[in-house]
């Protein structure tokens, strides 16, 4: 397995060495450590190779970790590179700002080896996911009929390069950083392509990603009046995170998406692909008293709702009442 090339930024030399030693124990040996945001930006500018991920301390003098995160994100080559924030418990409230600045994940000091291992696994998954997307993009550009990379039907995948498209893991991590009030203001809505497995079987990987990208664009067009982010969770399931009040009529939304998809009927026909059948789920929100486990399952519940569908969901609900 390729070693991840990591840049770690922390102004405490002792912590840098603890981090570097622990990372080496976990098998991550390609780690560059610098003591400040200014030094980090210099290394990034002068490095002949791209970094696979960043570990940024939040509390640093002059330019702090949140601002450094924002500056790294502003570089087009690092727009989607995993950035993991390192914070103390006293600074945990700044994690929300870090996510707003584009951070992917975080862990707390003092260092816990198990937690660090888990965070780096997330980093590796994101790097692999991005690599698959880049390989596919290369294939699209070269019009190759023989895709070299492997995508899995069940795996999350960034299907289109747009500012509203995020990785599924990043969306899950973002939810966990919201305070109760912020969380209460959000809703997750699932969109299931019920015949996605048929399209996956009938086309090659480039065709499948194009198929999903088209669906994502249609969904985005129906949501354009409210701010939202979207992730593809795998299995033809999309999850949208938006304002709690944005979708009051999921049935109307479903009709609008289906109408949008129908306008591409000829295109699907010419490609020999089935017209995507979209089911929209009910908006799923956390209550003000939600526990961490309930928050973690919010996106899964949104997926489940769209997999069941509004009609059957309604019948099931009536049977319960």
């Amino acid at each position: 397995m390729k070693d991840l090339r990591i840049l770690a930024v922390d102004d405490d030399r002792a912590f840098q060495m603890v981090l570097q030693g622990t990372l080496a124990q976990l098998g991550y040996n390609d780690v560059t450590s610098v003591p400040s945001a200014a030094a980090a930006l210099k290394v990034i500018r002068n490095s002949p190779h791209l970094f696979d991920g960043f570990l940024l301390d939040i509390e640093m003098p002059e330019v702090d970790g949140v601002e450094l995160c924002r500056r790294i994100r502003a570089m087009s080559v690092y727009r989607k590179t995993p950035i993991i924030m390192v914070t103390s418990l006293a600074d945990k409230q700044y994690v929300y700002k870090a996510f707003a600045a584009g951070a992917t994940d975080y862990f707390t000091k003092p260092l816990d080896e198990i937690e660090l291992r888990a965070r780096l696994q997330v980093m590796r998954q994101l790097v692999d996911e991005r690599q698959r997307a880049l390989d596919l993009l290369d294939e699209l550009k070269s019009w190759s009929d023989l895709p070299k990379s492997k995508i899995k039907f069940d795996a999350p995948l960034s299907v289109i390069s747009a500012n509203w498209m995020v990785e599924f893991l990043a969306m899950q991590n973002h939810l966990l950083t919201l305070n109760r009030l912020q969380l209460f203001g959000h809703a997750a809505i699932g969109f299931t392509v019920t015949n996605a497995s048929e399209a996956f079987r009938l086309t090659d990987q480039v065709g499948y990603i194009d198929y999903l990208a088209n669906i994502a664009t249609v969904i985005a067009e129906t949501l354009k009046t409210s701010p939202f982010s979207m992730a593809h969770a795998g299995q033809g399931d999309f999850v949208v995170l938006t304002n709690r009040t944005a979708v009051s009529d999921p049935k109307g939304l479903q009709d609008e998406v289906r109408t949008g998809i129908a306008s591409y009927q000829k295109l699907y026909g010419s490609l020999g692909l089935p017209i995507p059948t979209i089911q929209v789920g009910r908006p799923v929100s956390a209550s003000i008293f939600s526990q961490r486990a309930e928050i973690s399952s919010l996106l899964d519940r949104a997926r489940m709702s769209s997999q069941i569908g509004l009609e059957e969901g309604f019948t099931a609900q009536k049977q319960w009442n």
Binding site: F15, E59, S88, K109, P110, L111
Partner: peptide
């Protein structure tokens, strides 16, 4: 903050 980050 720095001491808390590594002493343990």
């Amino acid at each position: 903050h720095k001491i808390a980050g590594v002493a343990g």
